[in-house]
Design a protein around this nucleic acid. Structure first.
Length: 313
DNA sequence: TGGTATGATTAATG
DNA sequence: CATTAATCATACCA
């Protein structure tokens, strides 16, 4: 032990002899500062600390969002606190080691001072060098902690990485609403909440879903034909009218067709119009069942260009 | 393993 | 601030 210490001491001494100021050759204090900031922002530097604009933007919550993503985040938080613990204990260890080492070295120097003159300046230098060494180690610790946090974040917080398909129930609920409101698939906030509740997902997930759905439906309506008939049928079973064979009630089907001949959803003006049209369509819907029309009658919605072509007729 | 489906994110827009 | 359109990254399936 002692010999090891001594060798380090000698090394330090050498360096001191040459030039102290350039000892570390790379003093990026800015980087250190950034690391500190990040650790602070991530809540690593201080256990249990909240209340800083930092996180407020993303996870404002106390109000009415029940699960939102706190469930998913609990795992993250658990791991984060683990990291925090390790970080603090390591930091503590380093600091203690630093103190011990410093006293050790000063003692040694003091001993040496009996046989040779040791200037106070030399002492100071020694101490300074030791401290800078340890702070370099600390910086490394901070850096690796940062990396760990980043990895953790990307693994657990970035939802894109942990994407999970919605449950059958959720997609059913969403699709049913979507296809039964094809003419205006823009659920209100309340509706979104209800859909979210029924599907066991969050409101923002509902919004995302509708955003994706609208755009994808518009982009390639043909592809969704099957799905459309499927879900419109499904909803009609609830209100099922005649026909054991499944003669679907014309209403919703008609909506699909209607929609097709009407153009895109952005009928901002609205609801009444839709209703009227719906009734109209219902009345006009041919008994035979146009709904099965293999040809996608759809896609009138003025997509800029229709790749599937051949429609519009 | 490659292609597709799908949920989430982001930039642009009004 | 809600949407659209594009894009990312993963899930899922043949």
């Amino acid at each position: 032990m002692k010999s090891a210490l001594f060798s380090v001491l000698c090394e330090i001494k050498e360096k001191t002899a040459t030039s102290i100021q350039h000892e570390e050759e790379d003093p990026p204090d800015a980087q250190l500062l950034r690391l500190d900031n990040m650790l602070l922002a991530e809540g690593v530097s201080r256990p249990e600390k909240r209340g800083r604009g930092a996180a407020a933007g993303t996870t404002a919550t106390p109000g009415g969002c029940p699960n939102d993503n706190s469930i998913e985040h609990s795992d993250y938080r658990a791991k984060l606190s683990q990291i925090r613990q390790i970080y603090h204990s390591e930091l503590e260890k380093y600091e203690q080691a630093c103190r011990e080492f410093t006293t050790h070295v000063t003692n040694l120097l003091r001993e040496q001072s009996r046989v040779r003159p040791v200037s106070p300046k030399e002492m100071e230098h020694m101490v300074g060098v030791i401290h800078s060494k340890f702070s370099a180690i600390q910086r490394q610790l901070k850096q690796s902690t940062c990396e760990a946090v980043m990895t953790l974040r990307s693994r657990l917080l970035d939802a894109r990485r942990k994407r999970q398909n919605f449950s059958k129930q959720a997609t059913k609920v969403l699709n049913e609403y979507f296809y039964s409101h094809l003419s205006n698939p823009y659920p209100s906030e309340e509706t979104k909440e209800e859909l979210a509740r029924k599907g066991g997902i969050t409101v923002s997930q509902v919004s995302n879903w509708f955003g994706n759905k609208r755009i994808r439906y518009k982009k390639n309506t043909g592809k969704f034909q099957e799905e459309a008939t499927m879900y419109t049928e499904k909803t009609s079973t609830a209100t099922r009218a005649r026909g054991p064979g499944g003669q679907p009630s014309p209403g919703d089907k008609a909506m699909v067709l209607l929609y097709c001949s009407c153009g895109s959803f952005p009928l901002t003006s609205g609801g009444d119009m839709v209703l009227t049209l719906q009734t109209l369509a219902f009345l006009q819907s041919p008994p035979g069942g146009v709904y099965l029309q293999p040809q996608p009658p759809v896609s009138q919605l003025q997509p800029p260009m229709d790749p599937s072509g051949a429609l519009r007729k």
